[in-house]
Amino acid sequence: MKHRAFVFGLIVIAVVFGFDQWTKQIAIDELSNPHRVIEVTSFMNFLLAWNPGVSFGLFQGQAPWVMIAATSAITLGFLIWMWRTRDGMLGIALALVVGGAVGNLIDRLRHGAVTDFIDLHVAGYHWPVFNIADSAITVGAALLLIDSLFGGKKSSR
């Protein structure tokens, strides 16, 4: 049972990673030459942005190898946690975080920065531009928080 949950988690990682990389490549192809913005709705645009930092542009001044090493270490820790858990929902949460982290890690290795392209805005306020990997990490982190608050004893940490 435990290994079946881990294999399912690996599938979730692969799907998140694949969808993230596919959408980023489309964004690069369609939005970079010439640089343009595509209005999708009255509150969402697609535009190409490069983020050398982490979420919301934090830590942009760090050396790239620091970001790559930190992401790799955290990802490995989450994979070990995912291997050890028997809780399916916790495994999915960890897989979402890992899939997103690997997607952004590959961007850092390939481009030196993370490819962002989803721009949400309301009344002149723009949320920081993000991507599918960021969304998976956010959903996974929210599920981890919910599990830590309400999961009780069924979660293995």
Rank of each mutant, 00 (worst) to 15 (best):
F150R: 10
I80V: 07
L143N: 10
F6H: 06
V7P: 07
R157K: 12
L145H: 09
V98A: 06
L149Q: 07
S42F: 08
P34R: 03
G53T: 11
V139T: 14
I68V: 03
N51I: 06
D20E: 12
M44H: 01
V15G: 03
L94E: 03
V66C: 02
A70R: 01
V66K: 00
F59Y: 05
A5M: 13
A133K: 07
I68G: 00
T75C: 09
L144S: 07
W50D: 12
A49R: 13
V54F: 05
H111Y: 15
L149G: 10
G18E: 04
F150H: 09
S42H: 11
K153Q: 06
Y125G: 02
L96E: 14
G151P: 00
F6I: 11
V122C: 04
V15C: 03
A133F: 08
M89N: 09
V15Y: 00
A93Y: 02
T85Y: 03
R157T: 03
A63M: 07
V114W: 03
D20Q: 11
L149V: 11
W65V: 12
S156N: 09
G100H: 05
N33T: 15
L105K: 06
G57V: 12
A63N: 09
I137K: 00
A123H: 08
S135G: 02
I74D: 13
A136N: 13
I26G: 09
S135P: 03
A27R: 12
A141C: 15
D87P: 00
I26T: 12
A136T: 10
A95R: 07
T138F: 13
G140C: 10
R157L: 11
A142D: 05
R110W: 04
R86A: 12
M89F: 08
N45W: 02
M82D: 06
A101D: 15
G18I: 01
G140I: 08
A141D: 12
W83I: 09
V129Y: 14
T85G: 06
R4T: 13
W22L: 09
L31N: 09
S42D: 13
V37I: 08
A5V: 13
L79Y: 08
R36A: 02
I68Q: 01
G100C: 09
V37E: 09
A133T: 14
S156T: 11
L10P: 12
A93M: 02
I118W: 00
S156K: 08
W65D: 00
G151N: 10
L31I: 02
A27F: 12
D87H: 13
F46C: 03
S42K: 11
S32W: 00
T75W: 07
I146V: 15
A63K: 04
F150M: 07
I28L: 15
T71Y: 06
L47S: 15
L47W: 08
S148R: 08
T75L: 07
S155Q: 13
G88H: 05
S72H: 06
L90I: 03
L94G: 07
T41K: 01
M82K: 02
G88W: 02
G91Q: 06
K154N: 08
G152Y: 04
Q21S: 11
T71F: 08
W127M: 05
G99P: 15
T85K: 05
